[in-house]
């Protein structure tokens, strides 16, 4: 895992129990069965942790931790 993925994994662990097989390419909806309210809470946690703003439309194609980490990297990189 990259550093951002590791931090996101820790944040996600506060919201739901992560299975042993969970990895950066696991599907947040299919594998973790996250509800939409939990996804919103996770994104807000990530925004506060990284001190960034993530518009909802940037999440349209995000299914995994790795994809969310990529979005965050792009926002932080300007």
């Amino acid at each position: 895992m990259t550093d951002i993925e590791q931090q996101l994994s820790t944040l996600l662990g506060h919201i739901t129990e992560l299975p042993a097989a969970f990895g950066p390419d696991s599907d947040l909806i299919e594998d973790l069965a996250l509800e939409s309210v939990q996804v919103m809470e996770f994104v807000m946690e990530a925004e506060d942790h990284f001190d960034i703003a993530i518009a909802q439309d940037r999440l349209a194609d995000v299914r995994t931790l790795a994809q969310l980490a990529s979005v965050i990297e792009k926002i932080r990189g300007g």
Binding site: M40, V43, M44, E47, D48, D51, A53, I54, A55, Q56, D57
Partner: peptide, 17 residues
């Protein structure tokens, strides 16, 4: 528009966002 959310009834969080 770009859509964001802030924590429920939390003016400090709104301020940060």
């Amino acid at each position: 528009a770009d859509v964001y959310t802030f924590r429920h009834n939390d003016p400090e969080n709104l301020n940060a966002r």
